[in-house]
């Protein structure tokens, strides 16, 4: 029996998850569409005044990104749990955090990355000042992985629960607050042409913190909830 190296395992799981996702393209696109629709609802609800919208644009984009991520989290482990492949991963000789890291990475590639790509278009719809675009891009680049990591803990805890969707949002959203605060403040600061390195550094710290800790928490949670 040949044993796989960590890197091979990681690549294998990542590739598998991406392949499955590309077979169900609509499921992949839904969170993205949701993101776009929610953002367009705000001008309709608040009014089209350019300065009002520009002022609340960072908040709108980030809150919508949180909700879109949340929407896609529910199925992160669910399909694997239903067809039994999750249990195969749990009993395999490879360390669990490799699997969870690969699955979370796949989740980010499928939901976080598309959000980053559409965000500039939506920012234009909300009249975000031009000098804020780089801040928007950087905060999303560093912040959306944090959302995936933290959310994966919630998804792992609720994988065995039948109607876990609302429960998942209840337990995950409070954990997203720091990212939301620092990301929107970085974008606001950038709109005043001030340096926003501090906020970015904190988001980066959150990213590395969750990168190192979340896979273990996810592993422990999966062990508990699949029993």
């Amino acid at each position: 029996m040949s044993s796989l190296s960590y890197r091979q395992t990681f690549a294998l799981v990542l590739k598998r998850d991406l392949t499955i996702a590309f077979r169900h393209k609509d499921e992949m696109l839904n969170p993205l569409l949701f993101f776009i629709i929610v953002v367009t609802l705000f001008p309709l609800g608040i009014g089209p005044q350019a300065n009002t919208l520009a002022k609340i644009a960072p908040g709108i984009i980030w809150v919508s990104a949180l909700l879109a991520t949340l929407l896609s989290l529910d199925r992160l482990f669910k399909a694997d749990h239903n067809d039994g492949s999750l249990e195969q991963m749990l009993i395999s000789p490879q360390p669990l955090f490799i699997f969870t890291l690969a699955k979370i990475t796949a989740h980010w590639l499928l939901t976080g990355l598309p959000l980053i790509l559409v965000a500039p278009i939506l920012a234009a719809l909300l009249y975000l000042p031009e000098q804020s675009y780089s801040a928007l891009f950087l905060t999303l680049l560093l912040g959306t992985p944090v959302l995936s990591f933290m959310g994966a803990i919630g998804a792992a805890l609720t994988v065995g629960v039948k109607k876990g969707g609302v429960l998942l949002s209840l337990i995950v959203l409070p954990l997203y607050i720091p990212v939301l605060i620092f990301a929107t403040s970085a974008i606001d600061t950038a709109s005043l042409n001030l340096p926003y390195n501090g906020q970015l550094a904190i988001i980066a710290a959150l990213f590395f913190g969750s990168l190192t800790l979340a896979p273990f928490a996810v592993g422990a949670a999966l062990k508990v909830s699949t029993n």
């Binding site: 803990i153 805890l157 065995g160 409070p174 954990l175 607050i177 909830s225």
Partner: peptide, 26 residues
Amino acid sequence: MAGKAAGILALVGVINLPIIKYSVEW
């Protein structure tokens, strides 16, 4: 199972609580 799952969440929460508190104060 419920106790263990809630325990993990409580631990994740307690790690996050200082971060949340600091971020809200800031």
